[in-house]
Simulated assay, not measured.
Amino acid sequence: MTDNSLSQAEYDAITDAAAHWCMRLHAEDCTAQERLAFEQWLDAHPLHAFEYEAMQEIWDVAGDLPRPEPVVVPKVAIKPRTPWRTFGMAAAVCALALPLAAYSGWNLGWLPNAYQHFEATNNVRQVTLDDGSKVELNLGSELVYSNYKDHRQVTLKKGEAFFSVSHDSRHPFVVKAAEGKIRVTGTQFNVWMYEDQVKVNLIEGSVLVSSNDDLPGDGLRLGPSMQASYRHGDHIPRISQTYDNDNSLAWLNGKLVLDDLALNDALPLINRYLETPLMVADHSTGAIRIGGIYNIKELNTLVATLPKVLPVYLTRNKAGNPVLNSIPQQPPKS
């Protein structure tokens, strides 16, 4: 978004202000008066919200970067390339809160020299990252790519993605998903995420999977036809073998395949595509099994049809979620 009615100086002032507000709103001593002033600034011009959103994305990406002691570095005039214009200033002022020139942050390994943000809403989307890697995004998926001096990093914010990573042994490729990460140099693999659950399927090459980014080491190694899964609180991922009939990648053809799964296991796969998650009333309902092949674009219609194919009926809880309830079985007549 741009506004041709603004001068370069006015545009730069908005960018500086957005960086300032990004820092203050993340500060522990931010006051209620400051938050009110921020809301007033945000409403003053449509470009304010656009610039602040860009700052917030950069803050999220830089959240795990080191925070060195403040230093004074002479400012250097550089001509940035898109999207460096906004990012260079934001990273220097917002992400590190230091007057670093963009190239200094890159050389020190604190700041990326490329930043990309991708979303897929109603269609599967194929994108090419700045390093040449290919990624297919499933419906309702979002990721951010950043290229650092010593590694390439993707943060999968939600959904599912299939990666074909360009090989570079000196420049590892790291995918962050929930609390864990997947580290590779060049390979093909799939990452599925729903809430705090993550599953990684390796197709080609090898990857290292850890369930908690704060734990030491690079994680457990997967070979082809292996998968790892983890969720919040797992110390190490669970490793298993995949087989020829594995349907984890059916989404690449627009399908969700449920192979005689208990509803407790099937719902995370289904709910990934629903605006309002489907729930089960109790353990006995969750044990009911479901199978079939479904179009991922039509899963919203599945909820209403389940009572026609399973021994269940639908209610809604106080939060408005549809809830599946098992139909009590009639005792046999004597």
Rank of each mutant, 00 (worst) to 15 (best):
P80N: 11
T82Q: 10
V71W: 07
N113P: 07
P83A: 14
E179Q: 05
S104D: 13
A114N: 15
A178E: 12
L100D: 10
K79A: 12
L139A: 07
G180K: 04
D130V: 13
V184K: 02
A161E: 03
F118A: 03
L108R: 10
R183L: 11
A77S: 07
K134W: 00
L143S: 00
S166T: 13
P112M: 11
L139G: 05
P99M: 02
S164F: 11
G132S: 00
A161L: 02
P74C: 02
T121E: 14
K181F: 10
F87R: 00
D131S: 00
D131E: 08
M89L: 10
H171I: 10
T155M: 12
H151C: 07
P83K: 06
T121N: 13
E119V: 01
K134S: 02
W106T: 09
G88Q: 00
K176D: 02
K158D: 07
W110V: 06
R170W: 14
F162P: 04
T86S: 13
L137R: 05
S133I: 05
N123K: 12
Q126R: 12
I182Y: 05
V154P: 06
K181M: 11
H167I: 15
K157P: 00
G132I: 03
H151M: 02
L100S: 01
P83N: 12
S166A: 14
A77L: 07
D168S: 11
G105A: 02
D130N: 12
N123T: 13
H117K: 05
L139D: 00
D168G: 14
E142M: 06
W84D: 15
F162M: 15
S104I: 13
F163E: 05
